[in-house]
């Protein structure tokens, strides 16, 4: 086992993938606890599709993928939250509208310019080879910022997640913190998308939180356990993907799924007083 690690880390691209993946898994799952509890899981999924569209356009225009995608997806997050709060189109319908439109535009742009090649496939299903050195620097900086903001606003995030009306009534700017959560989520999604793929990135957000909630009963314990689960699944997933040459994103999701079932079964034993 130890030999495998040493062998893995002798490849620079894997070291890059592990550093970025570790940080992104951490950020995504922390935000996920709040998103799952606020019934916003679909927003993560919608944003990843918007991310796909913007990556496609960035490639077609020969722009750096992350620098274009981050502002576009943040803007989409802003739109999604505001529309789902006050409009005649219901929130979930608008998410579906936005995500399918983005994919459609992305696919059109791709077919007109480069055609469906491996790059596009990588956007959809992820690849650890996609990470360049400048990507790594940007990803590390942004995920550290996301993590620090989450810690600083932890108590406020709890308050607006638990009871938004109370928070607002007692002078906490709930709308601002909702927006903050959405923007941080947008950043985490774009950063994680290269590795996990647009189709799988939202699992990084929702799985650890859902798994932890099977067993843990306080907000803090759910947050901490999500962080541990997320990093654990990422590490196992990437080792498996290295050993058996499986796609990284898919491997991580399947490990998450297995862990979810283990926790779920475990919680049933608990309920029966075991």
């Amino acid at each position: 086992m130890f030999d495998v690690f040493i062998e893995m880390f002798s490849y620079a691209f894997i070291v890059r993938a592990v550093i970025v993946g570790f940080l992104v898994s951490l950020c995504a799952c922390l935000l996920g606890v709040s998103l799952v509890l606020k019934r916003y899981s679909m927003i993560g999924d919608g944003l990843s599709h918007v991310g796909f569209g913007s990556l496609a356009i960035a490639t077609a225009m020969n722009l750096a993928p992350l620098t274009l995608s981050i502002p576009v997806v943040v803007l989409a997050a802003f739109l999604l939250l505001n529309v789902s709060q006050n409009s005649k189109i219901k929130g979930d319908a608008f998410v579906a509208l936005l995500s399918t439109s983005s994919v459609a535009i992305g696919v059109l742009v791709i077919s007109v310019t480069t055609g469906l090649n491996t790059d596009v496939c990588n956007y959809l299903f992820g690849s650890i080879l996609a990470m360049s050195k400048s990507d790594v620097y940007l990803s590390v900086t942004l995920s550290v910022i996301v993590f620090v903001l989450f810690v600083i606003f932890y108590n406020k995030i709890f308050a607006v997640t638990f009871d938004e009306v109370f928070a607002q009534a007692t002078g906490i700017r709930a709308k601002f913190y909702n927006m903050l959560i959405a923007i941080l989520t947008a950043i985490a999604i774009v950063l994680g998308m290269r590795m996990m793929g647009a189709l799988l990135i939202s699992s990084l957000i929702i799985f650890p939180a859902l798994t932890s909630m099977r067993i843990f009963k306080t907000f803090k314990s759910v947050v901490i356990s999500s962080a541990i689960i997320s990093i654990f699944c990422f590490m196992i997933g990437i080792v498996i993907s290295y050993l058996y040459a499986t796609p990284t994103g898919a491997s991580i999701v399947v490990i998450n799924l297995i862990l979810f079932f283990i926790f779920w079964i475990f919680s049933h034993f608990f309920r029966r007083g075991l």
Partner: peptide, 8 residues
């Protein structure tokens, strides 16, 4: 299903 302790 909200996980929160009374203290929190």
């Amino acid at each position: 299903d909200f996980p929160a302790s009374v203290n929190e």
